[in-house]
Write a protein that binds this DNA or RNA. Structure first.
Length: 529
DNA sequence: TTGCAGTCAATATC
DNA sequence: GATATTGACTGCAA
């Protein structure tokens, strides 16, 4: 409990008593690998211990050791520089410099063959995950991450994208070689980087790796070499398989399967990927608009109505929530850059242009369509998707309770009280649902059940007409605005704003949900919106 | 138990 | 062929 508390709500150093500082010193030492068994007598070390490992880290990096010289696996070539005692602040500072060091022009040099990205997770004593490109030992990426200053994730990804495209390097290669991630993850990461402060330690790792890679003067050259080698290997394989007449390509799955004889295990076990039909997605989205946090009952109902597995529905909600959140992050960065306000985030914000990952569908089609700044960056491609998504805006339905009532339950239907969800059959019309905020379940599931239904009708339908409705309608935008620091300007009603508003509203629901949870805990909490 | 972050990997799209 | 999307999974924290 203490640990949890300390990790989530650390006090500033200056406010800590001598005793209170102790755990932090221990943590710092532990991060540096200097605290082995936890038996360190810390008393009186307020000055902060020496962080040798950090100092040893930077040298390899600065010396271009990030990726070892040609003979890969020999970490020897990059032996860390001699340690020099350094105070923690000094260490951190130099690390900061290291990681933030501007990225030098990319050019080529010679190759270092990266160790396979699939480094096994390390154990405690042998600090973990070596930097992919590096042969150098001493440093674990975790250490670097832990000590790393705030990085401009957006800027980093932007630069990485530039370098990759400029040099015609693929995400797959980059991901597998440098980050130890798959192509899809890389794509996602590059398109939708989260702000540094929203990232967990693990989530920061790829960014630190990218930064290090950017700082490596030979980065491109090394990747190029990798590429060449891959190609060679590929050709080789090809040739050999051709000459063997029996290509090693996977046998047609279909035939394999039909053979009852020896059903091949590996393949068999693979579950086919579920692909949700557009109507199903629409229905789920509608349900989400109603309830971002549906109760198990609602989920089940949804699953039944859509003929999906409940786990699929659950997963869908998880993914959707989390992706919506991410969309918001980017928008914060894009939109908030000037309005310091919401921007909260990393300095990254500055670069106004965003490479908005156009995915129309992915997150509600929510992206980009905001009015002011982004009009020009708009991607027509997603239009269609976004368009069809005139779903009711979540906020309209799940508006935050005007007063501190139990209202927030709006965002989550814990109890399913309202619940005449039943009947997979003809469901209550969406309009009904909307009009009856009191029966959230109903709303959610009915939303699912009426995919084709004109959402417009609903969106235009009077919002939960409670007393505040009339005033709240116009008011809502502004509250959102203050929450997110995003301009909701004039055209608020303009349909073009819909996606953005929906997204914001959805997030608002989520916040409400969390607030609600927090409220029940009665602990002081710092909220970050 | 629930929600989330991070990721994989199949599939869709460019 | 490269990149984007997205359902599923793992591990962790509350």
């Amino acid at each position: 409990g203490s640990v949890s508390d300390m990790l989530s709500r650390p006090k500033p150093w200056s406010k800590l008593t001598q005793k209170g500082r102790e755990p932090f010193i221990r943590m710092q030492l532990w991060l540096n690998g200097e605290l082995g068994q936890g038996v360190l007598p810390v008393q009186g070390q307020q000055q902060g211990p020496v962080l040798h490992s950090v100092t040893s880290l930077q040298d390899p990096l600065q010396q271009g050791c990030v990726s070892s010289e040609s003979t890969p696996k020999t970490s020897a070539s990059c032996s860390p520089a001699p340690e020099s005692p350094m105070s923690s602040s000094e260490s951190v500072k130099s690390l900061t410099e290291l990681v933030q060091q501007p990225c030098p022009p990319i050019e080529a040099s010679k190759e270092g063959k990266p160790p396979e990205p699939s480094d096994p997770p390390a154990s405690d004593s042998q600090p973990t995950t070596p930097l992919p490109l590096s042969g150098h030992s001493a440093l674990s990426i975790q250490e670097l991450v832990a000590m790393s200053p705030e990085l401009d994730t957006y800027g980093i990804t932007k630069r990485v994208k530039e370098v990759l495209t400029d040099n015609n390097l693929g995400q797959r290669l980059f991901g597998e070689t440098i980050l130890g991630l798959t192509q899809g993850s890389v794509s996602d990461l590059l398109a939708r980087p989260k702000p540094w402060h929203k990232l967990s330690l693990k989530g920061r790792e790829p960014f630190v790796r990218m930064q290090l890679w950017l700082n490596d003067p030979n980065n491109v050259e090394k990747l190029m070499d990798m590429k060449r080698m891959e190609k060679k290997a590929y050709m080789k394989r090809r040739h050999s398989s051709v000459s063997d007449s029996q290509p090693c390509e996977p046998p047609s799955v279909g035939t394999e399967y039909s053979q009852g004889a020896s059903p091949q295990p590996q393949h068999q076990l693979k579950k086919p990927r579920v692909v949700l039909a557009p109507e199903e997605k629409e229905a789920l989205k509608r349900a989400y608009q109603q309830k971002p946090y549906p109760s198990p009952k609602t989920i089940e109902d949804l699953a039944t109505q859509l003929n999906l597995k409940t786990s699929t529905v659950i997963n869908w909600f998880h993914n959707y929530r989390s992706r919506i959140r991410r969309e918001l992050f980017i928008e914060e960065i894009q939109a908030g850059s000037q309005g310091q306000a919401g921007a909260s985030d990393s300095p990254s914000a500055r670069s106004g242009r965003a490479a908005p990952s156009s995915e129309g569908d992915s997150c509600d089609g929510v992206e980009a369509t905001e009015g002011p700044g982004s009009a020009d960056t708009e991607e027509p491609k997603s239009q269609g998707e976004a368009e069809r998504e005139e779903v009711p805006r979540p906020a309209e339905q799940t508006e935050p309770p005007p007063s501190g009532t139990p209202g927030p339950d709006d965002a989550r239907d814990d109890d399913h009280e309202g619940g005449p969800v039943e009947g997979p059959g003809p469901l209550p019309s969406p309009a009904t649902a909307t009009a009856a905020p009191a029966a959230p379940e109903d709303a959610a599931t009915s939303a699912a059940a009426a995919p084709g239904e004109g959402p417009a009708a609903r969106s235009s339908a009077p919002p939960p007409s409670n007393s505040s409705s009339s005033s709240s309608a116009p008011r809502r935008p502004s509250s959102l605005q203050s929450l997110f620091g995003l301009p909701e300007a004039a055209g608020a009603r303009d349909s073009r704003d819909n996606p953005l508003r929906k997204k914001k509203a959805a997030n608002l629901n989520s916040i409400i949900h969390r607030l609600e949870k927090a409220a029940s805990r009665e602990e002081p909490i710092e909220w970050e919106f």
